Simulated assay, not measured.
Amino acid sequence: MNARTSRTRSLGQRIRSMTDAFGGIAACAAAAEAGKRPPRAALEAAGIAPDAFDDVKFG
């Protein structure tokens, strides 16, 4: 494997990771606005511990 292929793969992984994080954040925001608990996968993608969200109370 040459350096360019390795660098491209690394860039692709970074972009995918950022996309997953922003998608998780958007899903969490949409669920919170609807007064619902976000899915566990969305919380993990956003970097929020799913168990920590259990204490959140909705109006």
Rank of each mutant, 00 (worst) to 15 (best):
G47D: 05
R14A: 03
D51R: 15
A32L: 10
G35H: 12
A3D: 07
G47Q: 06
A41S: 13
A52E: 13
S17N: 08
R4T: 15
N2M: 07
F22W: 03
V56W: 00
M1P: 10
A34T: 03
R37F: 07
R9D: 12
S17L: 05
I48R: 08
S6G: 02
R16A: 15
R37G: 02
R40I: 14
A45H: 09
E44K: 09
S6F: 04
I48V: 13
R40V: 15
A29W: 07
R7E: 11
A30I: 06
R16G: 12
R40L: 01
C28Y: 10
A21I: 00
P39F: 00
A52R: 12
R4S: 13
F22M: 01
E33Y: 10
F53G: 01
K57I: 14
K36W: 00
F58L: 11
S6P: 00
C28N: 04
A26T: 14
R14L: 07
I48D: 03
A45M: 02
A42L: 05
A30T: 09
M1V: 11
I25H: 12
N2F: 02
N2W: 07
G12K: 07
R16T: 10
A31N: 04
A27K: 08
A29E: 03
A42M: 06
A52H: 08
F58G: 07
M1F: 13
R14M: 03
G59P: 15
G59R: 13
S17G: 09
I48H: 12
D54V: 11
A41F: 06
A49P: 10
P38N: 05
A21Q: 11
D20H: 10
R9C: 06
R40D: 14
P38F: 05
F22S: 02
M1G: 14
M18H: 15
A46R: 04
A46I: 08
G23M: 01
F22Q: 03
A21D: 00
G35E: 06
G12I: 02
N2C: 11
I48S: 02
E33G: 13
G12W: 00
I25S: 07
F22A: 00
F58S: 01
S6V: 12
T8N: 14
A29S: 09
G12T: 04
G23V: 10
D20T: 07
R4Q: 14
A34Y: 01
P38W: 04
A34G: 06
A26E: 13
G12V: 01
K57S: 11
A42V: 09
G47S: 05
L43T: 12
A42F: 06
F53R: 01
A29M: 09
A41W: 01
G59S: 14
A41T: 15
S6C: 05
L43M: 13
A45K: 07
K36T: 10
R4F: 11
A32G: 06
D54F: 00
E44M: 06
S17M: 07
L43V: 09
